[in-house]
Computed example of a mutant assay.
Amino acid sequence: MTSDFLYEAGVLKRTTRSGWPLARMANRESVADHSFRAALIAMTLAAMAGADPDRAAALALLHDLPEARLGDMHHLTRRYLDEPKPFQRVIDDQTAPLPPPARDVIRARAAEWVDQDTIEARIARDADTLDSVMHVRESLADRPDLQERWVDYLAESVTTDVGRTVLAEIRATDPDAWWPRTVTGESPR
């Protein structure tokens, strides 16, 4: 049933991302919180790069769907698991109750994410990382040394030109600078 699939996706709203406790970070987020902003980042990057923004956003939106069944596994945990990740198998199981058109679209996007053979897939992966960089910068402002180590580690996985451009801007921008400019009507740059 379609509703089963949608209820299962809702589990991500209650699934806390697991890597942040390693940094003793108090500002935790759910997988759904992360996926939402990652999708917006992917859409923006794709538009900037002349790629398909809707497809990139869909890839970023779906990239953590298997975590509704697997839980969120940070990089240290994944190191001890057999590869390749069971991502496609989980997606296939999750989408089994959907009618063919919906099932086929989601499975095709999942395969595209796993294969990483399109610009949209690579942008979506960069968006996944850039959201994490932003979360680290927002959450570890009072611990600049730890913040820089995390950002440096995450930045190594950004692969697209547009991703590296936006990463540099993220690193140079105060996470709280957007709202005073909005209130005063100051135009950015």
Rank of each mutant, 00 (worst) to 15 (best):
L6A: 11
Y7W: 10
G10V: 00
G10R: 08
K13D: 04
S18W: 01
S18V: 01
W20F: 15
W20T: 00
P21N: 02
R24W: 11
M25D: 09
A26Q: 10
N27Y: 07
R28M: 14
R28E: 15
E29S: 09
S30Q: 06
D33G: 03
F36T: 06
R37P: 12
I41Q: 06
M43D: 03
T44S: 08
L45D: 11
A46V: 09
A47T: 15
M48L: 10
A49L: 08
A49Y: 11
G50T: 13
G50E: 05
G50H: 04
A57R: 15
A58K: 15
A58V: 13
A60S: 13
L61R: 00
L61N: 00
L62E: 05
L62Y: 10
D64M: 00
P66D: 00
A68H: 00
R69A: 06
R69E: 09
L70F: 04
M73L: 15
T77S: 12
R78E: 06
R79I: 08
R79P: 11
Y80G: 15
Y80W: 06
L81E: 08
D82E: 11
D82L: 13
D82G: 14
P86M: 13
Q88Y: 13
Q88D: 14
Q88C: 08
V90A: 09
V90C: 12
I91N: 05
I91V: 15
D92C: 14
Q94N: 13
Q94C: 02
Q94L: 12
L98R: 06
P100I: 10
R103D: 00
V105F: 02
V105H: 02
I106H: 03
R107H: 06
R107K: 08
R109N: 07
V114C: 15
V114P: 10
D115S: 10
T118H: 04
E120R: 09
A121S: 13
A121F: 09
R122Q: 14
R125Q: 14
D126K: 09
A127R: 02
D128E: 07
T129D: 10
T129S: 01
T129C: 12
L130M: 01
S132N: 12
V133S: 02
V133C: 03
V133G: 04
M134A: 11
V136W: 04
V136H: 04
A141S: 03
R143H: 09
R143S: 12
P144C: 07
D145A: 10
D145H: 05
L146I: 11
L146H: 01
L146N: 00
E148D: 12
R149H: 12
W150L: 11
Y153S: 13
L154Y: 13
T159P: 14
V162T: 13
G163A: 03
T165G: 03
L167H: 08
L167S: 07
L167T: 13
I170M: 06
R171I: 04
R171P: 02
R171D: 00
D174Q: 12
D176H: 14
A177I: 05
A177C: 04
W179C: 09
W179S: 15
P180S: 04
V183C: 07
T184E: 09
T184I: 08
E186V: 09
E186T: 09
S187Q: 08
P188G: 12
R189S: 01
